[in-house]
Structures are given as structure tokens and as C-alpha cells.
Design a protein around this nucleic acid. Structure first.
Lengths: 200, 200
DNA sequence: AGAATAGAGAACGAATGGAGAACAGGCAAC
DNA sequence: GTTGCCTGTTCTCCATTCGTTCTCTATTCT
């Protein structure tokens, strides 16, 4: 979206205000009077600029033909749900905050964010304190890194290996061991899609 | 990045203040009045210096055409400049793309993005293919991870240790060795602030 | 002295904001 | 119907402001 000039901004602001007060958008003449213009022609150029900027919808040649484009609710990001630490349930934050994540990283899928506690995946470059972006899924491909709920009580971030009648969760830490479960003990809650780390 | 002169700093500070108060940047004339100048021509030279320093975005010949780079970052993301591989100069992409990065990760500083090639920082959880967010700076604290230009020809991402008369760059890979240089051989180009990884 | 920094002022071209005429389509009153 | 009137659109023309470029000068620091 391009930048508006002073005058264009002024007109847009007026339209927004006006929309709150009246059902109908103003005519060009009304706009001219409100803004101190004497020529509809001049005004029209500004309106066109607003159309170009995608802020206004043109209703060709119809009267009061200025509609504000619905401001697409600014994307508030994806929810930050809490902390995941191996051996515990996900510790949810009381009121979910939201985090702006680059679209490139999540590819239009439904995702959420967790903060990693612990070193169980350190050899995969997932460190204590990192934020992981998880795609909501209840199944995963083999070798995916997943959020798994084990025995309905503890949640972990592990690489998954699914064999017939057996599910193995592999940590990436030489000091820890892979654990094997029966399929019904392990519920997949999502698949790792991206990782964010702050060095602040 | 070069140092600003007194006057340039003054102008930059004014622009930052102004940006908080108004939607639109000032015209050159307004700037002149605010700073006690009578000639736009003089001001223009200073603005050019700020553009050169990467603090201001030039909007050629358009009015009120002074955008703080910081502000642009918020709107369209921060520039993805290219690839950094130990032992080579930064390989720039032809036309810089932009990447939307969560504000939380960069804290209002002027930053850019590089893609990491190689395993030199693998033990710090920085893997081949990761994207690193770098704050533009020409100095760093000890133990910071920095983008350093060595002998004006090769760029690397390393942890820095600055001693009197000596600069040591530490990789995080047991198979590699720390390198020691004279201070004038090493030019800091930025400090690691965040990391993004995609598992797609 | 020479370089770096700072400023003045003129001059040019482009962006902006505006005026007004002319045309076209819809709507209501006649 | 058709006759005006209101309104949106298109067009040309104009004035001012503003960014840029240029040359010339002053000050400060090394």
C-alpha cells in the first residue's frame, strides 16, 4: 500500500469519521464543502488515489458512490500457548498472547507457539528458551519432530518414529534415552514447523 | 556504517522525534525551520549522508520523502540481504527481499536477515540453512555473536572476544579452531539478535 | 595549507493541490 | 415521454511547494 499525501489522508480521515455518523457516504459536493474545495474535479483525483491505495471501493457512477473498504482486521498473529518441558503437561499461560510470525515460516497452516524448557532436543539445535511454531495436527510423518502427549499427562517435544504397534520418541541429547510406547499412549498434538530464538 | 557528524545526528534525532508525533515526515523546508537553517540545499547534503549511513530511506523526489528505515522495517519487514558462509564474503541476493519478523525479536533496532551456510556455529544451535537476524552495529560486547568482516574479504558468524590488541573469533564446532586477529583486520558488521528456522 | 564540516542562495524540474469546463448517467417532477 | 437537476467523471490548465543540483563561502580541526 502506497503512502498517502497530506490531502489524501485528510480526505480518508474525513470519510472514516463520516461513516461513523451517517448511513450514507457523502456526495462529492458535500465532501468539497467539508474540505474547502470548490472543484469536484480536484476532489475526484484524490478519491482515485484512495481507490488505488485500496482504501476505498469505487461504485462506478452511482451516487454517493464511496464505500470504505473493510479494513481487514490486522492479523494479530498466532497464539502463544505456554511452555513445553519434557515430562510435564504443557504449562499454559493464563491469557493467551499473540505473536507475529513471518508467513513464510508457517505456510498458511493453523499453528501455535510454545516456549521450550529443557535440553532434550539440543542436538537438533533446539535450545532452552527457544520458541517453537507448531502446526496443529493429530498425525505426523515418521521422523517429524512433534508435540506428543504421553499417557494423557505429560507433553514432550521429540522426534517420532512410528512402527506397527509401537511408537518411539527420540530425544536429541546424548544424555537421554529414546522411549517406546504403545500407540494409544501417545497422542500427537502438532508438528514442529518453525523455530524462533531471541538473543536479547 | 560510518559515524554521524554532530549536525547529522541532530537531524536524525529530530526525525525520530517527529515520527512519533506526526503521521507524515516533514518537508525539507519544515526541517530547515526546525533546525534553524535557511537553505534547503545545505540540509539536503546532510540527508544524503543519513541515507548513506542506512538510517533513512530515500523516496526519490516525492514530497515528504524522508522515511526512517526503522519505520519501514515495521511496515514491510526487514531486508533479507543474502547468505553468510564462513570464509567468504556475504553473498548478496540481487534484489533485496523483505521478511516480516516479529517485533519482539528485534526490539526496534535496525536489522537485516542473512541465511547461514555451514556448521561453524552448530554447537550454539545455529544450523545450516537457518536465518539469522542481525542488528546493524559496528561494535559489540564481548561474547556477542557477530557478523565480522575479516581482512575486508571474508564474512563470518562467530562469537567474538575482544582483548587489548587482539580480536578472537570463536566458532562453536569442535572441529574448528578459534582464530586470532589484529583489531584492524576485523570489522564488525552486526550483532546476532534472533534466529528463525523453518522445518518445511 | 589542506581537509572536513557547515551553510547560503540561485535555479530547475517534478510532485502536489486546485480551478473550471464539458460530458454522461440517473432520478424526480412536469 | 422529456425536461431539468444533481452527481460522478474526464479533461485541460495553472500555481505553489518541494526535492535536487549547482556554485560559492565560512568555520573548525589536523
Amino acid at each position: 500500500m502506497e503512502n498517502l499525501t497530506r490531502r489524501q489522508q485528510e480526505i480518508y480521515d474525513y470519510l472514516v469519521e463520516n461513516a461513523k455518523l451517517f448511513d450514507h457516504p457523502p456526495t462529492h459536493d458535500e465532501l468539497c464543502r467539508a474540505l474547502g474545495l470548490t472543484s469536484r474535479g480536484s476532489l475526484h483525483k484524490h478519491i482515485q488515489a484512495l481507490v488505488q491505495a485500496g482504501l476505498v471501493e469505487p461504485l462506478d457512477r452511482s451516487r454517493r458512490g464511496i464505500r470504505l473498504v473493510e479494513q481487514r482486521d490486522r492479523e494479530q498473529g498466532i497464539p502463544f500457548l505456554g511452555t513445553i518441558a519434557a515430562g510435564r503437561p504443557i504449562e499454559a499461560v493464563p491469557q493467551p498472547e499473540y505473536m507475529q510470525v513471518p508467513d513464510e515460516l508457517l505456510g498458511g497452516k493453523s499453528c501455535y507457539v510454545l516456549k521450550v524448557r529443557g535440553d532434550s532436543m539440543i542436538e537438533e539445535g533446539i535450545l532452552d528458551g527457544d520458541f517453537v511454531v507448531i502446526e496443529r495436527r493429530d498425525s505426523a510423518d515418521n521422523r517429524d519432530i512433534v508435540v506428543a502427549l504421553v499417557n494423557n499427562e505429560e507433553a514432550t517435544l521429540k522426534r517420532i518414529e512410528q512402527k506397527p504397534g509401537q511408537v518411539i520418541l527420540h530425544p536429541a541429547n546424548a544424555g537421554m534415552q529414546s522411549m517406546s510406547y504403545a500407540p494409544h499412549q501417545v497422542q500427537i498434538q502438532g508438528v514442529l514447523r518453525a523455530l524462533l530464538r531471541s538473543y536479547r
